[in-house]
């Protein structure tokens, strides 16, 4: 069983819901990322989603787009993200890491090279935003052969048929994008989200993470009551953006927000 599945299984035995923070690797500088990851684990993160910056981030809102741009300006690349993961693994052998990004950097590296390098760096899951299951046969089989979980998105307008398809190709968990739009957009309609989750659960036994639009402890708590995991990204990255000249403060604000979410979810 993968590290991701183990994490979900042991949490579900105690009724604990997972907290999954997302930050963009190398934002605002490469040195920020590894210490931030360790502190997020201390603050209550169960899995870390690490964004791989890309020059054409078509599914991301302004906050994550700018994070991507800052990281690229620092020379971040898929290969360097993998180095950061190895660096994190020197001290943390347990917390699962999911890379979230776009297909082109993976294609440039080659599926074979990328999946091998990701495995040896200690990556547990890969969410490639712009590869639908129909196009992903070779990619998914290479990932699975190396025991890396391919993670797929579901959207408010995903049909039963598509949920079935994601269930068949996905591993680890499925990620439900809780609103139409891009990352960081709008706010959530919890009744709608709950209805959709019930529909999804009819077709899959995979755990379900919910993200896009989780901004504070209260929303995190509400989502935790209806899903297996809460994903939070833009709200954390805003802290980096708001404190360009004080990264310690940014780090502290991220830790505080995560800790407040953890507490609200557990209470």
């Amino acid at each position: 069983m993968s590290r991701i599945s183990t994490t979900f299984t042991s949490a579900s035995s105690t009724g604990r819901k997972l907290l999954i923070p997302f930050i963009t690797a190398g934002d605002p500088v490469p040195e920020f990322t590894i210490p931030m990851m360790h502190e997020m684990v201390t603050a209550g993160a169960d899995i870390i989603e690490l964004g791989v910056p890309f020059s054409g981030p078509m599914a991301d809102g302004p906050v994550i787009q700018r994070a991507s741009e800052r990281a690229l300006e620092q020379g971040m690349s898929l290969r360097k993200v993998l180095k950061l993961v190895s660096g994190f693994r020197e001290q943390d052998k347990n917390t699962p890491i999911v890379l979230m990004g776009y297909l082109n950097p993976v294609e440039a590296m080659g599926y074979q090279n990328f999946t091998e390098a990701a495995k040896s760096a200690g990556v547990d899951g890969v969410l490639t935003v712009d590869i639908p299951p129909e196009e992903a046969e070779e990619y998914v089989s290479l990932l699975k052969a190396r025991e890396i979980d391919p993670i797929f998105l579901l959207a408010p307008n995903s049909s039963d048929e598509r949920i079935n398809k994601m269930d068949a190709v996905g591993n680890g968990y499925l990620y439900y994008v809780s609103l139409k739009g891009v990352t960081g957009a709008g706010h959530l309609d919890l009744t709608e989200v709950e209805k959709k989750i019930q529909q999804i659960k009819k077709f899959t036994k995979l755990p379900l993470g919910v993200g896009f639009g989780v901004k504070d402890a209260q929303t995190a708590k509400s989502i935790a009551q209806i899903a297996d995991a809460v994903v939070v990204g833009s709200a954390l990255i805003s802290k980096i953006e708001n404190n360009p000249n004080n990264l310690d403060k940014a780090k502290q604000e991220i830790v505080d927000l995560l800790a407040s979410m953890r507490q609200a979810m557990d209470s």
Binding site: A59, D130, I131, P132, N157, R162, M166, V177
Partner: peptide
Amino acid sequence: RGHFGPYGGMFVAETLMLP
């Protein structure tokens, strides 16, 4: 599904699939 040999296709996030 929009393929011209190895090219083309529908490489979009799930949110765009239905539209």
